[in-house]
Design a binder for these strands. Structure first.
Length: 236
DNA sequence: ACCTTCGGGAACATTT
DNA sequence: TAAATGTTCCCGAAGG
């Protein structure tokens, strides 16, 4: 009984944490890891509301829930403060290159794959940060096809993925506001809401979003304001 | 002129 | 079944 509760608590905590990271998810295989995890992050105790996540049965992965979730996440000061002890890398490494078996597994999305690649030093020759804090990144012209081919393989596409096709998918992101195109060759920018989801630690210390004085609805305004500046990257 | 990059329409496929 | 999320193909434009 006690073990079941502990296990549930861990699963909640792990999911909460990894939902704000990137990639496909997997529960660790044994209970030792559960315990080690909880000991390492005792502030995360399997409360979905601690970062605005819905319980699994209510959760949907559309854009609206993503932005709402990140807004709620930013309102939770205690969780915000707790995360200060976790680096972006730690968050990423918790779930990168992993798969969640069993319930609720979802597809890896392209922007998650891009973020994952940006955090992977082995992909530096293919894609790099231009301004990590603002989520601006750039494909490396010479090797970008390697990155796209790996994406295609990972998705198990019928035909090889190309930059042309990946860029087409990115333009869909531009339409939905998840990514903006920077007026610079091969350069894009994650939207702030996407960045918050992928790596909340990006925003630690940014009073723009996590201020205790901030109003929840302001996120959308600030998001627009933030994106409105994207033409200003001509100096890069 | 050529190549690369960009932008979008449209049909189609897969997953949730 | 419908919606979400790409994937694939195509065409034309812009810029170096």
């Amino acid at each position: 009984m006690e073990q079941d509760k502990l296990r549930e608590a861990f699963e909640d905590a792990f999911e909460v944490l990894t939902q704000h990271s990137v990639g496909e998810l997997q529960y660790p295989p044994d209970h030792k890891n559960h315990m080690a995890f909880l000991n390492r992050y005792p502030h995360i105790r399997g409360n979905y509301s601690c970062c605005g996540m819905l319980p699994p049965e209510e959760r949907s992965y559309n854009w609206r829930s993503l932005t709402n979730g990140s807004a709620n996440f930013c309102r939770e000061e205690s969780f915000h403060q707790s995360l200060q002890s976790i680096t972006g890398n730690q968050l990423v490494q918790t779930s990168l290159f992993q798969q969640k078996g069993g319930k609720g597994r979802r597809k890896l999305r392209l922007f998650e794959y891009l973020f994952e690649s940006l955090c992977n030093s082995e992909m530096e020759s293919c894609i790099q940060w231009v301004d990590k804090t603002k989520g601006v990144f750039q494909y490396i012209s010479k090797n970008k096809e390697k990155l796209t081919e790996l994406w295609g393989q990972r998705k198990g596409n019928r035909k090889p993925m190309t930059y042309q096709k990946m860029a087409r998918a990115l333009r869909n992101y531009v339409r939905t506001g998840e990514i903006t195109k920077i007026r610079r060759k091969l350069t894009y920018q994650f939207s702030e809401a996407v960045l918050q989801r992928l790596s909340p630690s990006h925003f630690l210390g940014k009073d723009l979003f996590c201020s205790q004085y901030g109003q929840p609805d302001q996120e959308y305004l600030s998001l627009n304001h933030w994106n409105a500046n994207y033409y200003g990257y001509g100096s890069y």
